[in-house]
């Protein structure tokens, strides 16, 4: 009986050590400057300074990327071109397209570890810096209706 408890305690301690280490890594990585998680935009969590703001709007079934500069408003559909090693803030929201409601979408750029829900009535911000040039994929990973799978495009990062 005693040996049983000993074996079990050893096992639980081992598991706990692994889990505490994993939880530590989890907290440690979130403090890295390269990491951001999608955050609801409120008065206390404004858009970070010194970043280029890209307004991302999901509608059924397309991603619209809008930037403002001195020449005015520029909108592209299902694709956006960014400059390498430059920090961008994506302000992700959902708009009513030609259908009945604005619905929930989820912007996902797998190669840059970027993911943010597009929620009607709320802006989510996520900051990231592309560090490689090339063409990468953009997807919607929250089911949003009939042609959900066509809500995808390419992200081009240029030097």
């Amino acid at each position: 009986m005693n040996s049983k408890i000993k074996v079990e305690a050893l096992w639980i301690i081992g598991v706990l050590i692994v889990l505490v280490v994993a939880a530590g890594i989890n907290i440690y990585t979130t403090e890295s400057p390269n990491f951001t998680v999608a955050t609801k935009e409120t008065a206390s969590t404004p858009i970070p300074k010194n970043t280029t703001v890209v307004y991302v709007q999901g509608e059924q079934w397309a991603w619209l990327f809008t930037t403002y500069n001195s020449t005015g408003k520029h909108t592209t559909t299902d694709g956006v071109t960014l400059v390498v090693n430059h920090t961008y803030t994506f302000v992700v929201s959902s708009i009513k397209g030609s259908h009945q409601f604005a619905v929930i979408h989820d912007l996902y750029i797998p190669q840059f570890d970027v993911q943010a829900y597009a929620v009607p009535g709320q802006n989510n911000t996520i900051t990231f810096t592309p560090i490689h040039t090339g063409t990468f994929i953009i997807e919607c990973v929250e089911y949003c209706g009939y042609l959900h799978y066509e809500m995808r495009g390419y992200l081009t990062v240029v030097a």
């Binding site: 939880a23 989890n26 907290i27 979130t30 998680v37 999608a38 955050t39 609801k40 943010a116 829900y117």
Partner: peptide
Amino acid sequence: LNSGLGLAWGLFFTTASF
């Protein structure tokens, strides 16, 4: 976690998941 809960809630729920 990616719906805009923010970092604090994210850490709470991930730690509880461990």
